Amino acid sequence: MTTDPGDPPDAAVNVDVDVEELLKRFGLSDKEVDTYLTLLEHGEAKASTVAEAAGVSKRYVYSASEELAARGFVTVNDHVTPTTIRANPPGEVVDRLANDAQSMRPALEARFSRAEAATEPFEVVKSRVTVVKRIRQAIGEAREEVALSFPLDSIDEVADELRAAVDRGVLVLLIVTGVDEPNGDLPTDLAGMTSAARAWGQLMPSMLTVDNRAGVIAPAEMLERSNSSQQAIVLTQEQLAPVIVGSFIGNYWPAAAEAVVTDPAPLPATYGNFRHATFQAELHRRAGGTFRAQVVGRFVDSDEPVELEGEVVGVTQGLVAPATNEFPVQHTLTLDVDGERVTVGGPGAFVEDVEAEEVELTTPSS
């Protein structure tokens, strides 16, 4: 909104609002906010100019600019040399955001009026149909990671959601339970449903975690029988979801037999989920050739932010057999950074040098 110089003082624009925090509410990361605000100050600039002013790498400016352009914040002029990035007029940006928000309202209200999802941290579910519905819904909302154990006889009920998650680039770890012969009983199209799958001979509780924020625990009997008296628990408490995935990866995954491991994803690729980055790094390591990692995170000892890049010279993991980690939930990348070995871990890292927030895997030529 613009104001006329003749407008009274109470119509003036409020410049004291926390614009950085407001931009974050629209999904921009800290560095995307810094990049965008720097561009606003320059109007139009080269990536190197923005990188220096915002205190980020030039590679990051290009990556952030693509995201900002997709959301209508900036325009990337890649038809000129060198490439420049121009901030779009703020009025157009605000109008677009407002229109997007208004266009969501009918769909959100329609979902809200018929929603059955729990609003409490815990929901006790007595119906098999409802449990499967909750599992399918959670998988459909996954953005980074799905860890699921599910009976072989019922796998078709969640197959479409699993395939869609894989297509979105989600790390899908699947334990198929009640499998008598791992090499003969599994579906022929299991590879399309998962990043890595394992088989468990006995029935086990069905467990689901999605993005470390939501989970489901259901007794095996409940999913085997429609008239079971057993009850399932659906939780949305972020503090407990990591406990479930820790049990899934630490207790059940190592004991199950490896059945499917997909091919490595094309590089370059960026991962906010560190287990996914480690999984892909191990696949590329086994495929041969050299590849690098660019890491954004913090030093574990000092809590100071850090950006580093180096060749991946070691992968410690337990997602692909044989496991190379010392304890089940340990996943580590070892980088050669200017001749120095630096270890990188995920959230909560304590044995590594760096805790990563984001990892980009690249080939030397990318």
Rank of each mutant, 00 (worst) to 15 (best):
M1L: 12
P9W: 05
D16G: 14
D18Y: 03
R25I: 13
L28G: 06
E32Y: 03
V33D: 04
D34V: 05
Y36S: 01
Y36Q: 01
Y36W: 05
L39Q: 03
L39W: 02
H42C: 04
A45S: 07
K46W: 00
S48Y: 00
V50H: 00
V50N: 00
E52G: 00
A53N: 11
G55W: 05
V56K: 07
S57L: 03
K58E: 09
Y60H: 10
V61Y: 01
V61A: 01
S63K: 00
E66W: 00
F73C: 03
T75L: 13
V76G: 05
D78Y: 09
H79N: 02
H79T: 01
I85F: 02
N88V: 03
P89G: 08
E92W: 11
V93A: 01
V94D: 14
Q102T: 01
Q102V: 02
M104I: 08
L108N: 15
E109Y: 10
E109N: 11
A117G: 11
T119N: 08
T119G: 07
E120G: 05
V125L: 10
R128D: 12
R128V: 01
T130R: 14
A138G: 06
G140S: 13
E141L: 14
E145P: 15
P151M: 02
L152E: 07
S154F: 04
V158A: 07
D160T: 14
E161G: 14
V166H: 06
V172D: 04
L173Y: 12
G178M: 02
E181Y: 10
P182Y: 01
N183F: 03
N183L: 06
L190W: 08
A191D: 12
M193Q: 12
S195R: 12
A196F: 14
A196R: 15
G201H: 06
G201W: 02
Q202G: 12
Q202I: 10
M204Q: 13
S206K: 00
S206H: 07
V210T: 11
R213F: 00
V216Y: 03
A218G: 04
A218W: 02
A220V: 06
A220T: 05
M222C: 02
Q230I: 00
A232F: 09
A232G: 11
I233W: 03
I233P: 15
I233V: 15
Q237R: 04
P242T: 10
P242L: 03
W253H: 09
P254Q: 11
A255C: 04
A256P: 15
V261P: 11
D263H: 08
A265L: 09
P266E: 05
P266K: 12
T270A: 12
N273T: 07
N273H: 14
R275H: 13
A277H: 09
Q280F: 05
G288H: 09
V295G: 10
V295I: 15
V296Y: 08
G297V: 00
V300A: 13
S302D: 11
V306T: 13
L308P: 08
L308I: 15
E311G: 05
E311C: 06
G314R: 10
V315N: 10
V315R: 10
V320I: 14
V320N: 11
F327W: 14
T332S: 11
T334Y: 05
T334L: 10
D336I: 05
E340L: 14
R341D: 06
R341I: 00
V344R: 06
P347Y: 01
G348A: 07
F350V: 08
V351R: 14
V351P: 11
E355T: 07
V359Q: 05
T362N: 06
T363Y: 04
T363N: 07
